[in-house]
Design a protein around this nucleic acid. Structure first.
Lengths: 247, 247
DNA sequence: CAGTGTACGGTACAACGTACGGAGAGTGAG
DNA sequence: CTCACTCTCCGTACGTTGTACCGTACACTG
């Protein structure tokens, strides 16, 4: 990043970019779609940190600067990637609105978004700005609102409940993904076993009775895929709360 | 980042670093505390992206490489920053355990964490790895468990409920922070007004009836500080759910 | 006062996003 | 067919990043 002031990033330009057809090939057959797809492949495998214009270009067998004909810059590329993967979430036809009731629908949404984030871990690295108003995101939003329509919620409440569920899933997925990464980093060595003795020595003098007791219980659970359990429990609690408001 | 393989980042080293006293001055009076505090100041004002070893060093009037005598590298610096700010959350003495009941306690926790994230927006940019086992984080965890102790939850459930609340707050704060940033970026020009016409033209042919209706309602609410409302509603729902389990 | 360990920092390197401008292919007009 | 113009592609270059390496110079120990 050479210039301190980032490019203006015209939102108008971005919207057209999102909705324009992505398949019109250039001279070497390069398309916007191909750029986005290859960027996604890199980010899926190695995270946003490994996503580099040069690497995308290498995968496509073109020069780095050729990408800029199809994509204004890296931030815009990431937005295009986000919209592209959003479209996949319900591609198999199991729609939230057809799960038999709002509760099953929301559960389905939670499960699909969980999968979605684990499949594309970089989605939890992006700090959102304005909503990405592309075809993929719009379609996803439309489908996810379906189970909430006509059950006695106002339009605003529909959005808020949905956002609440998605927030829960996203944040828990962040934890899971972070955990997966550090576990993949060092070769399976037992983190707690190595850290624990150093920790107890370091915090001699301090006492955290609750934290130690609960932390131990939580720590054991973590080794069995814990964040998912947190997500499921919190989701159930939240759904119970919604049910209470409806009756 | 010159080497593709990041430094091993010994977790043992990090734990000692977190608990070691931070005030022992070096030859020029440089301390670990000073490094961390100045790094926090930069990140608070301009985000993690603006946090640079050179900038921290400049603020301290030392050479960039001098930081490395006090801090092993940038990732470790960020972890030290996280632990340092965690310590502030309840520094004024209004503890979650003394709010009169678990419900008020959790609400207090949510509100304090909301403030915390807005005060240090970079905290929502960090993808967590292993928990940061420093004095600040430990103290915060201890205090936040207090309102949940002895109300009929298992140790594991205590952790899960707390994590659920924190997840909700964090994810909603992320949205708020992202929104604040784009709003600060372009000089207050009305985003929706400029985007809307382009959008309707671009998506001519596609129909998203629910998304358009609900999105409009949600869009209006956004201009009045919406993510906070989402957080509050979802939190209430979650708390209702907890109440249902307890009785 | 001499010796030694440690704090400091200058230089250098690989990698980053991308501005700039040239090269070359494609297309339309005369 | 020829010319001119446009648009795609990309080589080069710049400023900035984290930090490895190694020399320097201070402060404490003896």
């Amino acid at each position: 990043m050479p210039s301190n002031a980032p490019r203006p990033s015209d939102p108008t330009r971005l919207v057209s970019l999102l909705w324009e057809p992505s398949d019109r090939p250039g001279r070497t057959g390069l398309t916007k779609r191909a750029v986005v797809e290859n960027a996604i492949a890199i980010a899926d495998a190695e995270g946003l940190g490994a996503l580099t214009m040069r690497r995308v270009a290498d995968r496509l067998g073109v020069g780095a600067m050729s990408l800029y004909t199809h994509v204004p810059g890296k931030p815009e590329l990431v937005e295009l990637m986000l919209d592209a993967v959003a479209g996949e979430a319900y591609a198999d036809g199991a729609l939230p609105g057809e799960q038999g009731g709002w509760r099953a629908g929301l559960r389905h949404i939670a499960e699909r978004n969980w999968r979605h984030h684990l499949r594309h871990p970089w989605t939890v690295e992006v700090v959102p700005g304005r909503p990405v108003l592309g075809p993929g995101v719009s379609a996803k939003y439309e489908l996810e609102l379906a189970p909430l329509d006509g059950i006695g919620l106002s339009d605003l409440e529909m959005d808020q409940v949905l956002c609440g569920v998605l927030a829960l899933v996203e944040s828990t997925a962040r934890q899971q993904i972070g955990l997966d990464r550090v576990r993949a980093g060092n070769g399976d060595l037992d983190w707690w076993a190595t850290v624990s003795p150093v920790l107890t020595r370091a915090m001699s003098g301090h006492r955290f009775p609750l934290a130690e007791r609960v932390g131990a219980a939580a720590g054991e659970a973590v080794e069995a895929g814990d964040p998912l359990a947190i997500m499921r429990l919190s989701l159930d609690l939240l759904l119970d709360g919604v049910a209470g408001r409806l009756r």
